[in-house]
Simulated scan of single mutants.
Amino acid sequence: MNEPMSGGRWGALRTADVARESGYSVQQVRDLEKLGVIPAAARMGNGYRAYTPLHIHALRAYRGLAGAVGPVVARKLLAELRTGTITEAASAINEVHVRLAREREEALLAEQALRAIQTEADTPEFEQDSDAMTITELSRALGVRPSTLRFWEQEGLVTPERVTSLQARRYDLSAIRTARIVAALRNTGYGVPAVRAIVDSLHRLDGTDEALRILRERLDHIALRTVELLRAGTDLAAVVAADQDPTAG
């Protein structure tokens, strides 16, 4: 995409100019201004909006962020970038990269667990106590609350062992693998009934194909979201830099 038109060279930018340069429609530009995605435009003597190149950068940045983390989070993040320091802005953007990397790692671990399940029928495993986790350890490993694991247990998704004397939950290697798959599927947006059906099918010879397909689709989707975030990089930098310079705009 071409660089935004210079406000100094072209004068105030019209709504149509901003729409053309940002890839949004005229109505979308107005709607996003109302939502606070971009700063309110100044008004010219005739009452028409007067935009600047910063508005184009902000709209392009929003497009990339919305593709990476969704429109609600993108609006909140852009608002934070405009009010925080440059250190806070850099930290907020870095956190999005970390979040995507974490989601990718989670999906890869679930895929590894699924492939391990595929081989269990032919390669019996004798699991050691060192392979087991408590509910606290597993919740930390998955990034979920212990109450979430208890809910999954109630729904028949993940079944732990228990220490008889204390009735404390203990998850063996098989349960840990299943929990990783459940976490990945739930984060993909699958409801409990669909996840239960997939989990119930895992030990069938042909039952893992659907779960593998879903996990591959999730990895592809995370990759696309990462590209959207990278595409927004230059425009995000322009927004942050302008907000640190009161004379910019």
Rank of each mutant, 00 (worst) to 15 (best):
R43K: 13
R102D: 15
L35Y: 09
G67E: 01
T164P: 03
A223V: 02
R14K: 14
L78Y: 01
L109W: 07
S91K: 08
G191D: 12
L202W: 11
T208R: 15
A175E: 05
G189W: 05
A12T: 10
G156V: 08
G11I: 12
A241Y: 09
D235A: 13
V192T: 15
A242K: 05
S139T: 05
V158I: 10
E3P: 01
L236D: 04
L229W: 01
G8S: 14
K76F: 02
I176R: 13
M44D: 09
E3V: 07
E103C: 04
L108A: 12
A66E: 03
S147E: 15
V227K: 09
L230V: 11
T247E: 15
L219M: 11
L13A: 11
R104G: 10
S139N: 05
K76C: 02
Q167M: 07
R140P: 00
G189Y: 06
V227P: 00
A58K: 01
L109K: 12
E21A: 14
E228S: 14
S201M: 12
D209K: 12
S147W: 02
R20D: 15
V195K: 01
A194R: 10
G207Y: 11
R49N: 06
I38M: 03
A50F: 08
V29Q: 11
L59P: 02
P160M: 09
A42F: 04
A41C: 03
A113Q: 04
A89Y: 04
A242T: 08
R102C: 06
V192G: 05
I38G: 01
A175M: 06
A12H: 13
S25D: 13
I93N: 01
D200E: 14
A238I: 06
R186W: 03
S139F: 05
T119H: 11
A121Q: 14
P193H: 06
L185N: 02
G11V: 11
D31M: 09
G156I: 07
G7C: 09
F126P: 00
A66C: 05
V72A: 10
R30L: 12
